[in-house]
């Protein structure tokens, strides 16, 4: 394969995104901005719904557990368990045992998204220096005030780190949603016979770009919500987080 041919492959893939062409069998028109737009929209809708539900469930639980400082083992090992179950197996399991369609796929993605968010919310809240909390109580803060004024602001960057990880995972995993009849960007990838290698490559490019954009965007949010004092103090990098088995890196614990 010459270099030119490689460049040609990618060039033709970009073209595929913007202009429709005949399918491999020559029976239908495939690709083009309209189809990719539709697929992207479904892809994003599925991802957003799943992530929103996961956040709504995992953040309160994680913060609560972190605040009371119990069930550390559970909160931390849930991400380890989550990582050990391959997403393809999870989706296949749902398809085989639960059913197909938007709601079922969304449910899988919620399950996938919960562990990193829950763990980070737990770690973020419980990592707050006990002396800080103690002095806050000593000055007369109520439990609620301790949580909302001390623990939450300090935990926020870590929580958003978890959301960022899960967002990337969800967007990536939504690619295999077509196995359960949800028409995401995985359509051109899975239906090789219709879309061909060029269609696969085109979809791969779009998925990769969306994921990177999503990561960068939430990374920006993460920086914005980090209190300035923490930015200044944190330069050696996440020292407090390492207390928990040293297993929780600063961001994404799961590629997808």
């Amino acid at each position: 394969m010459t270099e030119l041919a490689i460049i040609g492959d990618f060039f033709s893939a970009f073209e595929f995104i913007f202009e429709s062409r005949e399918s491999r069998a020559g029976t239908v028109q495939v690709g083009g901005l309209e189809e990719f737009g539709q697929l992207t929209l479904t892809h994003l809708a599925l991802s957003f719904v799943s992530l929103a539900v996961a956040v709504a469930i995992a953040v309160p639980i994680g913060i609560y557990l972190g605040h009371i400082g119990r069930f550390q083992f559970l909160a931390v090992s849930i991400s380890n368990v989550g990582r050990a179950v391959p997403v393809l197996a999870l989706i296949a399991f749902f398809i085989a045992f639960v059913g197909i369609g938007f709601a079922n796929v969304a449910l899988v993605l919620v399950l996938l998204a919960i562990p990193p968010i829950l763990t980070n919310a737990y770690v973020g809240t419980s990592q707050v220096d006990p002396d800080t909390v103690d002095s806050a109580r000593g000055m007369g803060f109520s439990e609620r005030q301790v949580l909302t004024r001390i623990e939450l602001p300090i935990a926020l960057p870590t929580i958003f780190g978890g959301i960022r990880t899960s967002a990337v995972n969800v967007v990536a995993t939504a690619t295999i949603a077509p196995y359960a009849n949800v028409e995401t960007l995985g359509i051109p990838i899975i239906n090789f016979n219709v879309y061909g290698g060029t269609g696969q490559l085109a979809a791969a490019i779009v998925v990769a770009l969306i994921t990177l954009a999503c990561d960068a965007g939430l990374g920006g949010v993460q920086r914005v919500v980090t209190p300035k004092g923490l930015k200044l103090a944190a330069n050696p990098g996440g020292a407090a987080k390492r207390r928990l088995f040293g297993l929780i890196p600063r961001r994404s614990v799961q590629p997808s």
């Binding site: 394969m1 041919a5 490689i6 492959d9 990618f10 990337v168 967007v171 990536a172 995993t173 690619t175 295999i176 995985g186 990838i189 290698g197 696969q200 490559l201 979809a203 791969a204 490019i205 998925v207 990769a208 994921t211 990177l212 990561d215 961001r251 994404s252 590629p255 997808s256």
Partner: peptide, 21 residues
Amino acid sequence: TSILFTIPSIALFLLLLPLTG
């Protein structure tokens, strides 16, 4: 390494196909 890490694996497998078959 973070950027590599963020690219979904399905996409990376497919993106590598023209290069390494």
